[in-house]
Design a protein around this nucleic acid. Structure first.
Lengths: 362, 362
DNA sequence: CCTGATTGGGAAAGCGCATTCCCACTTGTT
DNA sequence: AACAAGTGGGAATGCGCTTTCCCAATCAGG
């Protein structure tokens, strides 16, 4: 698309393009008042819009932040995206969005596209996986990121480093204490209750899921309980639903799979993210079961849309927007007031939220 | 950020930059096989990444689509964004995201920023408002869009044209039959039920809200019913919650405000979007009331997260992702196979979904 | 008045790329 | 052999902008 150019503004104002640029963009060299006024009027009358591409080329800084998510309509990613947007706005930058379905190969393509656009930084949200089938793509993604950082780009990854990434200068990780928080949740859920636990996890090798499983088992151990059985499923609502169907069949058959009968209020289910918990709850409901009467359920994340979920779901609350903001700020250039921006993991914490879904029913 | 350049690739391969460009980008002029091989090897060994900004400058096409939403974490906008992402991907373009809170002044700033980046097209989602307080900003937004279109950009607006926009060449509207669908909903809700209706609307002057209100009143009239009372509130969950508190108080006091007592199953509430309906339902619940026992509730949009809302909410289902896709495709350049892309409103339709929230309770 | 320092405007160069046009070479036809 | 047509490579130009450096003008001090 064409629009008027700085050269046209300069010509109309009767000055050089250098002077027009100085007036409109600021400069150490201050043009005279009369000249500045002429330039501004010329720009107004021509409806001058700067060409950001030409500016980026001349200045070697694009003002773009690339954001990679699995699915923008997933409340987890949407909340992080909102935080990224806010922080980007503070930095007067714009967000380029890429949706990848969580496939490392797709993520690598997105990084390459951002690099081509000379995005100043990239924020990557979404779980990492060490599954064998992702091995080649992980390696390519890591190589692409290393190259991007070596060329001067900044990267912030939410959760875990990209598998195989060299963590060069400019590479930041916003760690999330999934393990510790899941342990805390387990301790609180086990307190004063003697029922059996089962964990609905994502695929093996998916770091977020594995951390949360490991943490929950640690918490159970800390509370003097034996390890819970783990059901492996897709890391989404549908995976939770499938696991929920299996568990509903068990509850109805009166068994709990590997242990004895549920004691007291039935089975305690921990799903490693909220949407899986929601899926499992939907399955139990579809099978005529009630929460928390027939089984207790807890999730992880505290996505915003949980607010209207009934029964109120116990979960670990993560500050998702804040995570997006932190990641974005981690990639910001050093500011004039000397703020420290280093590659150390940034502190994020969460909270156990016990709600109706895991309360006693008398 | 810096990376190797086409010029360096050409030098390493021993050819001119023009030839290197032809090899890597394709051209009517086909370089010889030996030369092409040398160029490709040089590009590989240098890890050449094209500079999209320079390409955009040279080609006058940026490959960017600007997307303006009110709040990316709102399920309505997130679903539209997903559709835009998919369609953008088909066109091998990238999406620039701007979040504006629905303020026309913020939207104008976003349009200007997209114009500076020479975005090839812009998709604007979110309700239009003719409120007096928005008048100046609406005029500025319209002027900015007109200029953008005159400079060759393509715009697609979801729902209503921007107030004051001249609808120049390149300006498309993806209309949504809010009025007709709301009328259909009213007809179906009124069928076989004699209770009173009340409408929870957004602020006056907000087109989407006003259309849905008008449509619902028409549907009631068609069904031989008198007009429903309209409560005006913020066009979000919180606005629905506030209205719900008022209605709860009435229900508890045994009145319905302007009519007599609720007949049969209480009051029939139509909220002009799902999140308002959810807010109202939350308020009723907080006041100890049950849906649909004490009041029936219906919303509009059928956002994805409604899936796990209980009781299942009656609503008008809109194909939100499809709307995003249609809008994006409306702004695509004509393709080689001669597809027609004109400024006529594009057909979108929806469906009334009657669910548990408006069913009879015996 | 002369000299030196400071300030501001403009010319030039370059950021990285795509495209056009000129030229040389090859092939085919008469 | 001569001429015409086709093909491919390279030089030049320009997309819109920023920055640097040269030069001229002005001011202040001796």
């Amino acid at each position: 698309m064409a629009a008027s150019t700085l050269t046209e503004v300069a010509r109309l104002a009767g000055v050089s393009p250098a002077t027009a640029s100085r007036v409109l963009n600021g400069s150490a060299r201050k043009p005279g008042k009369d000249i500045a006024e002429r330039v501004r009027q010329a720009a107004d009358s021509l409806g001058y819009i700067p060409n950001a591409q030409a500016q980026g080329l001349a200045k070697s800084s694009s003002g773009l932040i690339g954001l990679i998510v699995h699915d923008i309509a997933d409340p987890y990613f949407a909340a992080i995206a909102r935080g990224v947007q806010e922080a980007a706005r503070e930095q007067r930058r714009m967000v380029l969005l890429a949706t990848t379905g969580g496939a490392p190969g797709e993520e690598k393509e997105a990084v390459a596209a951002f690099a081509a656009r000379r995005a100043d930084s990239i924020v990557i949200a979404g779980s990492r996986s060490s599954r064998a089938e992702d091995g080649d793509d992980n390696a390519e993604l890591a190589a692409e990121l290393d190259r991007y950082c070596r060329n001067g780009g900044q990267v912030a990854v939410v959760g875990h480093p990209v598998v195989g990434a060299a963590a060069p200068e400019g590479y930041h990780v916003v760690s999330v204490p999934n393990q510790e928080l899941a342990a805390d949740l387990a301790v609180e859920l086990a307190a004063g209750w003697e029922g059996d636990f089962v964990i609905i996890g994502g695929p093996e090798g998916l770091f977020t899921s594995d951390d949360r499983i490991r943490g929950f088992q640690e918490g159970l151990s800390r509370a003097g309980r034996g390890p819970a059985e783990v059901l492996r499923n897709s890391f989404n609502r549908s995976g939770g639903y499938d696991a929920g169907l299996k568990l509903a069949a068990r509850i109805k058959a009166g068994g709990t799979g590997e242990g004895g009968r549920p004691a007291g209020n039935g089975l305690g289910i921990f799903a490693v993210n909220d949407v899986m918990a929601i899926g499992a709850a939907a399955a139990l409901r579809a099978e005529g079961l009630r929460i928390p009467r027939d089984a207790r359920i807890a999730g992880f994340d505290d996505i915003e849309t949980l607010r209207d979920f009934r029964p109120a779901l116990s979960t670990v609350s993560l500050p998702l927007e804040e995570i997006g903001r932190l990641a974005t700020r981690a990639t910001a250039p050093p500011t004039a007031d000397g703020d420290e921006q280093d590659s150390a993991p940034l502190p994020v914490t969460g909270r156990v939220m016990l709600r109706r879904s895991t309360e006693a029913t008398d």
